[in-house]
């Protein structure tokens, strides 16, 4: 690791597991749940958040010495809103169908608490390069959960992954469906996203006892 010092590597790796933004810091849950019925939508959402968070962190970090602390929330909101508008326009231009699926949730990246949280906690006090790494790391931690939830919901709910029928064809009864397997359509409904995240938290905390809360 010539490019990254040990401290920098930690910035990226910590949020992936033991300091995960969703399961430990409890930030940015709204969008994580609503758009995970398909794996593709979750991946696009993860990439969008990564772009916004990494760039936003750099911008805020560059301006950190000239932002008056009283109006910093407004400044942060404007920076995020500008970046989100760019992401939204790019999505509309190149993948219109997907931007319809994500509907208002692209706009809601603005109020995604991970972004404001990282601006407040990290970018306001660190150099641009470290802020960039921190942004990438936290967005990756968020993306990992999104992709896990999206993977299970799409696989169990519609038997597909990224639109490919990996379990066979439910109409012609091939693959797993030949022996009587049925899709669990319930996985596609919103409440299951909550329960899947709950189970992820359960698994993670049973593996790492230090994370257990005392009520």
């Amino acid at each position: 690791m010539g490019l990254l010092s040990k401290k920098d590597t930690r910035l990226i790796l910590d949020p992936l597991a033991d300091n995960n933004p969703i399961t430990i810091q409890v930030l940015g849950i709204c969008s994580a749940l609503a758009i995970t019925a398909q794996l593709k939508a979750s991946i696009v959402m993860a990439i969008s958040v990564m772009a916004v968070l990494a760039l936003g962190n750099v911008v805020i970090s560059l301006m950190r010495n000239i932002i008056p602390s009283k109006i910093r929330i407004i400044v942060q909101l404007v920076v995020v809103a500008a970046l989100v508008i760019i992401v939204d326009q790019i999505l509309k231009a190149y993948s219109y169908q997907l931007s319809k699926t994500l509907s208002v949730f692209v706009g809601l990246i603005i109020t995604n608490c991970i972004i404001m949280g990282r601006f407040e906690a990290f970018a306001l006090g660190n150099s641009p390069w470290r802020s960039f790494l921190d942004g990438i790391g936290n967005a990756a931690g968020y993306g990992v959960i999104l992709i896990i939830v999206g993977f299970f919901r799409e696989l169990l709910g519609s038997g597909t992954l990224l639109g490919f029928q990996v379990l066979g064809d439910p109409i012609n009864k091939t693959g797993l469906y030949a022996i009587g397997y049925e899709n669990n359509g319930f996985m596609l409904l919103s409440p299951m996203a909550l329960i899947v995240v709950g189970i992820i938290i359960w698994v993670q905390r049973s593996r790492n006892k230090a994370l257990i809360e005392d009520h």
Partner: peptide, 23 residues
């Protein structure tokens, strides 16, 4: 509540069950 589910985990699952009810 099982120790690893305490706090956040069980809240997620309760919210899921409530959402099923609200559906």
């Amino acid at each position: 509540v099982p120790a690893p589910l305490r706090g956040l985990g069980i809240t997620f699952i309760i919210t899921g069950l409530m959402a099923i009810g609200f559906m």
